[in-house]
């Protein structure tokens, strides 16, 4: 029971209270770059969720069974970048062969994730929070879902911004950043969330 409560707390925390984008400011680059249309935003969000879940599992294994026994904890960042980069490559090849439809749907976003700091962030945070394997995977997947939620909400707002009447020199990134800031403020409201 306690395990389940714990996982629920991690889930709610990753999606709402400690949202990767709005409260930890990780993965801002794809968040701003791929949020002009809801369709592409969904594609990016799903791809990130997928990779974050897998990366959490593998980096936890690498850390626990290779780095910690050899007392190489300080090499985490380098080792994790290596893991994530090869993992994304591997997933790309695998999808192209076995799930061509998903591959074409994710398209260019899959290789883009290699340099998404939210993925590296989730791997490092798993270690920092000393999560066990299951907790790590759950944190990875729900963190990805939080990213998906944030980018889809943001993209749908940006689509409507076209009709908004704001000063012309705010066009493009300025108004997008203001929007993102206001959304981050709104998400601060979840920080009081508590799990009994």
């Amino acid at each position: 029971m306690e395990q389940i409560t714990n996982l629920l707390a991690i889930t709610l925390g990753a999606i709402l209270a400690n949202n990767f984008i709005f409260s930890q400011f990780l993965g801002i680059c794809p968040f701003l770059g791929v949020s002009k249309k809801v369709d592409t935003a969904v594609g990016m969000g799903v791809a990130v969720t997928f990779v974050m879940g897998l990366a959490s599992a593998i980096t936890w294994l690498v850390n626990t069974f290779i780095l910690i026994p050899l007392d190489l904890g300080y090499m985490q960042t380098v080792a994790f970048i290596l893991v994530i980069a090869s993992l994304v490559q591997f997933i790309e090849m695998f999808l192209q062969k076995s799930m061509p439809t998903l591959y074409t749907a994710l398209g260019v976003y899959l290789p883009l994730i290699t340099t998404n700091c939210a993925v590296l962030g989730v791997a490092l945070l798993n270690i920092q929070n000393s999560y066990n394997f299951i907790e790590s995977v759950v944190y990875g997947i729900t963190g990805g879902l939080g990213f998906l939620l944030a980018i889809v909400l943001f993209a749908s707002i940006r689509e409507r911004l076209v009709f908004a009447d704001y000063p012309k020199n705010w066009d493009g990134f300025p108004i997008a950043l203001v929007t993102a800031g206001l959304m981050a403020l709104a998400f601060m409201g979840f920080s009081g969330l508590k799990i009994w």
Binding site: V62, L72, V78, L82, S86, M93
Partner: peptide, 16 residues
């Protein structure tokens, strides 16, 4: 360790 890890991933990717 990093060399071996890199070589291992490289091998896996080559096979894949």
């Amino acid at each position: 360790v990093l060399g071996v890890l890199g070589a291992l991933f490289g091998l896996v990717l080559a096979v894949a």
